[in-house]
Amino acid sequence: MTHGEFARAVEAYADMVFRVAFSSLGRWEDAEDVTQEVFLKLWRSDRSFTSQEHTRFWLIRVTVNECHRAVRWYRRNVLVEDVPERPDAPESRELLDTVMDLPEKLRVAAYLFYYEGYSTHEIARLVSVPEATVRSRLARAREKLREILKEEDR
């Protein structure tokens, strides 16, 4: 991968990787760290991809794995309550706060389904769980989010 290609990948996918990380970790600084780590892996991998969708899929998959690694590290080393939230988080906080209050597995599934537009089958491949589990997670997330989504869609 040339530096130009890498720069284009950062331009195209950095926000997506950050959002996946944020929806998983719920903490701004950690999501930034994971984003850097993911792109460093991309650069070091010296790989080629068959399409943009292949790149996108690979980046999400690596991000999910890196988030799992970060969560494991946090559980061993840090009290989550000690980590400050970023004060200038987005303006449209209401739904975001609601989503971030969901358990991690539910919010990642909801994010990938509702925002990135992946099917339950694709999400199952991305997070390495059976498709039925993804459907179940989405149903639980949907139940919790139903009220606020109804209001936003009106």
């Binding site: 926000d15 950050f18 930034e32 449209s92 209401e94 739904l95 994010y111 936003e152």
Partner: peptide, 12 residues
């Protein structure tokens, strides 16, 4: 749409 609004504000 609601998700789009919430998550589009999240930028690196």
């Amino acid at each position: 749409r609601a998700f789009e609004k919430a998550f589009s504000d999240l930028k690196l």
